[in-house]
């Protein structure tokens, strides 16, 4: 995976930007609004009723296309947490109705005629990093391929709580390209841990196990890149309770100033996309330098934990 690059980051969020107090009044949250505010959340993004997760994915990929970065894509890896979120909810007579695959639609809509499609939907909020890993694996096994488009998109169904494991949720999508040609970052490694024994973990169990697993995840991911956690220049996280990484930074002996999640208040937790949103924000911040190493650890139901380690290339 060491020889591959990652870039062309893009994201799209649900069209309605709402303050969490408004959503609390609408009965869309489980926690008290002041508790979510104490965690650092303020705003989140909710789709218009007629918008689908595919619309979000398309909007993110359209930005890449507009930059001219969608040429020569050999594969599309599409990760989603809620694959049924974009199909009807009535009784099914013809199961073809359940096979309206978004990656194929993207391929057709953006004219990526030679791209094959791969779907990931069992990695929950970690899916985007799973997509990077699969992209790297595809490039490694297909010497003639040059670029893989990675996409993640989710929207919550109507009436669902916009809160999971005490995190304020946004509908949204993110996309990027993994390829052989030099780009913004080198993709050094992606590491994953799965504990299916906690596959039905409740919110408290999810929070309770978060620390030990994320500690292990970052240590092991850094080791795969030949690093100790303290050697990481940046840690780009999901948008979650801001105390969580104060605790983890101490456990990992990292300077908390290097932990980066600037969109927590404005964007919230976008299922699998907020790590990309935060990574884009870091790369656009002017604070990164070539050669710096960035860890992107994320946790998701399943339970799954994944961490990518990148090196800034330019």
């Amino acid at each position: 995976m060491n020889g591959f690059y990652i870039g062309s980051f893009a994201h799209a969020l649900g069209a309605q930007k709402r303050h969490l107090r408004e959503s609390a009044e609408a009965g869309l949250l489980r926690s008290a609004p002041q508790d979510l505010e104490a965690a650092g959340f303020r705003w989140h993004h909710v789709c218009e009723p007629e918008d689908t997760a595919y619309d979000l994915a398309r909007a993110a990929v359209a930005q890449i296309a507009a930059r001219g970065d969608l040429a020569d894509v050999d594969a599309i890896v599409y990760a989603t947490c809620l694959p049924d979120g974009q199909t009807g909810s009535g009784p099914v007579r013809d199961v073809k109705d359940l096979m309206d695959f978004p990656a194929g639609r993207l391929q057709a809509e953006f004219g990526m005629s030679r791209a094959i499609v791969v779907g990931l939907h069992q990695q929950a909020c970690t899916g985007v990093l799973g997509a990077l890993r699969v992209a790297g694996a595809l490039l490694a096994t297909e010497p003639g391929w040059r670029r893989v488009l990675c996409v993640t998109a989710d929207r919550f169904p109507a009436g669902a709580w916009y809160e999971q494991a005490y995190n304020l949720i946004s509908d949204g999508a993110a996309a990027c390209v993994v390829g052989r040609d030099p780009d913004v970052c080198r993709l050094l490694t992606v590491h994953q841990i799965t504990n299916g024994g906690l596959g039905r973990a409740d919110d408290d169990e999810t929070v309770g196990t978060y620390f030990a697993y994320t500690h292990r995840l970052v240590r092991e991911a850094a080791a795969r890149a030949g690093l100790a956690p303290a050697e990481l220049d940046w840690v780009v996280t999901q948008n979650m309770h801001d105390k969580a990484w104060q605790i983890l930074a101490r456990l990992l002996e990292l300077d908390h100033a290097r932990v980066w999640a600037p969109t927590l208040a404005d964007v919230g937790h976008v299922i699998s996309a907020d790590a990309v949103v935060n990574l884009s924000a870091l790369l656009d911040s002017g604070q990164v330098r070539p050669g710096q190493r960035i860890a992107v650890p994320v946790a998701g139901f399943g339970l799954n934990w994944q961490c990518a380690v990148l090196e800034v290339a330019r």
Partner: peptide
């Protein structure tokens, strides 16, 4: 079956932060 990890030692401030943050975990 749940394959739970053994706990990792944390410092005082870390545990205080955890206990403080847990106050907002509704009803669990």
């Amino acid at each position: 079956r749940r394959m739970l990890p053994r706990p990792i030692p944390c410092d005082r401030a870390g545990f205080r932060d955890l206990a403080h943050a847990a106050r907002a975990l509704r009803g669990g």
